[in-house]
Simulated scan of single mutants.
Amino acid sequence: MHLRAGPRRGDTAAQTGPKLGVVAETQRVQLPNGIGLTVSDQGEGPVVLLNPGMGMPQTTWQFTGVPQGLLEAGFRVISYSARGVTGSDAPPPPYDVPTMAQDAALLLDHCGVDEAILVGYSMGCYVTQALLELRPGLARGVVLCAGLASSEIGRLVNEMELELIERLGELPAAVAAFETLITTLPTAQLQDAETVRVWKDMLLNGPASWTSPDGRHGQLAASQSWMVAGEPTRERLAAIEAPTLVIAYEQDLFFPPKTSLAAAEMIPNAQFVAVNGLAHGGLMLDPDRTATVRIVDFCRRIRSGDRPTRGRA
C-alpha cells in the first residue's frame, strides 16, 4: 500500500479522514551509509520510534494522532521518511528490509538512542522486526499495527506492481490509485461515489509520495523479498522478547485479523487487538482513534514497568 495523507474533515461532504494535527518540524539527517532522511525528533522522555509504511511520508503520521498523543503523554517521538520516499534519498533499487532496518538503527545512533519503544505500521512492521534482530536489547516494547503477516492478496499486488514496473519502467498512476483506494478504505466508503471521487483526485493530482520511480521500485522489492522469504517466520516471532501489541483491522485485505492473530500467538508476550469496520488505512481514518489510544496506553504501561499480559486486549 502506498500511503498519503487523506482528505481532511470539512474538505468535502465525504469527510473521509481525521483532522490534521500540528505538523512537526523536520530536519535532514545524513546517515553514515550515505543515505539522507527527512526526520522529526520531538519531545522529551522515553523514546518512541515510528517506522513508516510503504510510501508513507513522515507527515502522514500527523493524520493518525499517534505523535500528538505520545508527546502529550510525555514521550520523545522520532519519525522519518524512509529511503525512497519524498524528502529522503532514493538510491537505485532493489532495497531489502534489513537494509531499511539498518537506516533506522543508524538514525537512532545519530539521535543518541540505545533504548526505545518501536512502533511499526504496515511495512514498518517488517522494518521493526528486522531492527529487533539487528539491535538486540534495543526495544522496551513493540507495536505492530496492520502489518504483521501478509495475505495472499498482498503478495499478488506486489507481484503485479513489480511486473508492471519491469515492463513499463514505472507504475501507471491509475493502477497505483486503484490499489490504494481498494485497500485503504472500508467497504462502505468504497461504495460512496463522492468519497471515491475525492480520494481519486487526491491520489492522482496531490503531492507525490515518492522521491523517484527508483524509490517506489526499491520499497516494493524490499516488501516482496520479505514475503518470498516466508517472513515473518515462526522462529523470528518466537524470538521477540519485548512486550508486544499487535493491531489488525477487520477489513484489511493486506493484513487481515486472522493471519495477524495467528502470528501474534507465536510471540511470547503479545496482546492482540482487532478494530472493526476499518480497512488498511484505519490508523489514519478512524474517527475514534481506537488504535492510537491503544498505542499510547501501551507505551504508558511499558514506561511504568507494567508488562501487558498475553492474549486479546
Rank of each mutant, 00 (worst) to 15 (best):
M1K: 06
H2Q: 15
R4F: 02
A5S: 06
R8F: 12
R8G: 06
R9S: 12
D11C: 12
A13Q: 14
A14I: 14
Q15Y: 15
G17T: 03
L20H: 02
L20Q: 04
V22S: 02
V22W: 00
V22A: 06
A24N: 04
Q27E: 03
V29D: 02
Q30E: 15
P32H: 04
N33H: 01
G34H: 03
L37Y: 01
T38K: 11
Q42F: 09
Q42N: 13
G43T: 12
G45N: 04
P46W: 01
V47F: 07
V48D: 00
L49T: 08
N51D: 09
T59W: 04
T60L: 08
W61N: 12
W61V: 15
T64P: 14
P67G: 14
G69S: 12
G69C: 09
G69Y: 09
L71H: 01
R76N: 05
Y80V: 01
A82V: 04
S88C: 02
P93Y: 02
P94H: 09
P98L: 05
A101D: 04
D103R: 02
L107C: 00
L107F: 05
G112D: 09
G112Y: 03
D114H: 14
I117L: 14
L118Q: 14
L118T: 14
M123G: 00
G124A: 02
V127A: 00
L134I: 06
R140W: 11
S150H: 10
I153G: 05
L156D: 12
L156E: 09
M160Q: 14
E163Y: 06
E166K: 07
R167D: 12
R167L: 08
L171H: 06
A173K: 06
A176C: 02
F178I: 04
F178T: 11
T180D: 09
T183C: 14
T184Q: 12
L185V: 13
Q191H: 08
T195Y: 02
V196C: 03
K200P: 02
D201R: 06
L203N: 07
N205T: 04
G206T: 07
S209L: 03
G218Q: 05
Q219W: 10
Q219D: 10
Q219P: 05
A222C: 06
Q224A: 15
V228E: 11
A229S: 02
E231A: 15
E231F: 14
E231Q: 15
T233R: 13
T233E: 06
R236Y: 13
R236I: 13
R236P: 11
I240M: 01
E241P: 01
T244S: 05
A248M: 07
F255D: 03
P256C: 06
K258H: 10
S260D: 13
L261N: 07
A263P: 11
A264T: 09
M266K: 15
I267C: 05
P268W: 12
N269R: 15
V273P: 07
N276P: 13
G281N: 01
G281F: 10
L285V: 09
D286N: 08
D288L: 02
I295Y: 03
D297K: 03
R301A: 02
S304E: 11
T309F: 04
T309D: 11
R310W: 12
